[in-house]
Design a protein around this nucleic acid. Structure first.
Ligand SMILES: [Mn+2]
Ligand SMILES: [Mn+2]
Ligand SMILES: [Zn+2]
Ligand SMILES: [Zn+2]
Lengths: 136, 136
DNA sequence: AAGCTAAATGAAAACGATTTTCAATTTCAA
DNA sequence: TTGAAATTGAAAATCGTTTTCATTTAGCTT
């Protein structure tokens, strides 16, 4: 256990969910400017390897890292503001496990993502439309 | 409409699901060696833009392209042999839509993935274990 | 058919996130 | 304290993706 490793681990759990390597790197640098990017990257991978985090890929070319939670959760991804929020998938996982079983597939993990518009972005669009209507 | 574009479109629909750019490029080259990689890439993006395909990201660093189907489907991803197979998600989508609604989230698309072991890879592991038991 | 313009192409380079290399440093067990 | 093994930081390599740009082509207008 090196001081750098401890910094990275601490920073990861302080930052919370859906962290990118760059975000973690910046956070670590707040405490110690001298820590290298590769060290942050390697230790983040290590956090994954020991099962404390897992990669989340929303398809924007940047891997995010999510704390592994006791209860599984799904992700709402807003295509407008790119926000990523979580929701419970208790019942859904049951149905999925059944599906897997039906197909003789042994599940290890479930990835559930809903893309769409978050509430804020819906409001923005609505107010825009209203303005346009007034203009007409 | 150029001959290259037609080749790319045809090749994509011949190849079927979960195609990578490289796979499509190879397929197109079977018909015409002179077609450039960028042309294949651009036309594949075009196929997406017009709504005939969508990107699938299983987190292995390679984007795959899936035909858009009338009925939504989920993916089984075998972590052993990396195979990607499809399954029906009729009921699940209903539950997810309800979840989205509960959170005032307007859904556009659902991504459902189950990672684990396909039947073949289960068998391989079982037979390996059996051999080990015999050895002991 | 010829001319024109916008669109498409192919080769190459640029890009950017991720991963590896390697010499130097540090940890930790003996 | 000593030495082997692990870790670090800087730099470079990797690799899928995307852009650039000079050239060609498609598809309209005479
Ligand atoms: Mn999450
Ligand atoms: Mn599919
Ligand atoms: Zn939003
Ligand atoms: Zn398999």
């Amino acid at each position: 256990m090196t001081p750098q490793r401890e910094l990275v681990f601490r920073a990861f759990f302080e930052l919370g969910d859906h962290v990118t390597v760059d975000e973690l790197y910046d956070k670590v640098k707040e405490k110690d400017k001298s820590v290298g990017y590769s060290t942050v990257w390697r230790n983040l991978k290590l956090i994954c390897k020991v099962g404390l985090a897992e990669e989340v890929n929303i398809g924007d070319g940047v891997t995010r890292y999510d704390r592994v939670t006791q209860v599984p959760h799904g992700h709402f991804f807003c295509v407008e503001c790119k926000s990523l929020t979580e929701f419970s998938v208790d019942q859904i996982v049951g149905v999925l496990a059944q599906s897997a079983n039906d197909h003789k597939f042994v599940p290890e993990a479930f990835k559930i993502e809903i893309r769409g518009l978050c509430q804020q972005c819906q409001n923005k669009k609505t107010s825009l439309n209203t303005k346009e209507e007034v203009r007409d």
